[in-house]
Amino acid sequence: MDVKALIVEKVKEKFGSSLEEVSDFRDDLCLTIKRDQIVPLGNFLKNDPDLQFSMCKDVTAIDWATRKNRFTVVYHIHSFKLNFTLRIKANITDESNSIESVTSLWKSADWYERETYDMYGIKFVNHPDLRRMYMPEGFEHYPLRKDFPLLGIPGSLPFPKKAE
């Protein structure tokens, strides 16, 4: 049986109503799920004996800037059993900019989620250590948001004292 068909069928069976969209562009399978179902879905994909998505490769977000639901969180998870990388998307539908953390399922998501928080300001609920990853503590902006200028905001990052 085709791997993609297997995954879609299994997920549809379990999460039929929460599955918003299934897309397949350039041979990349992508499932869009309701935001509150991300941890149950991850749990199912990881622990199902036929799927075993045991590694989380990446967590990031997309800022759509002009859309009403501005942020989409994107996960890439990998199964060594199926030799397949699956993409999951979850749209953030309200102003809280928050989503449940998946660190309880995959430890590697820890830093990816911190990075996403640093760059987009998306809060991951139940994350053990949600700090900034790259930018210094005390920096107030979120650089990868579309409303942040490429050259930064003057004065937001201090210089060391100038030499004599």
Partner: peptide, 15 residues
Amino acid sequence: YRSYSVVQGIDQFLP
């Protein structure tokens, strides 16, 4: 690197 995090020349804080 014309970007928000890079110092545009270290002579701004070092001789």
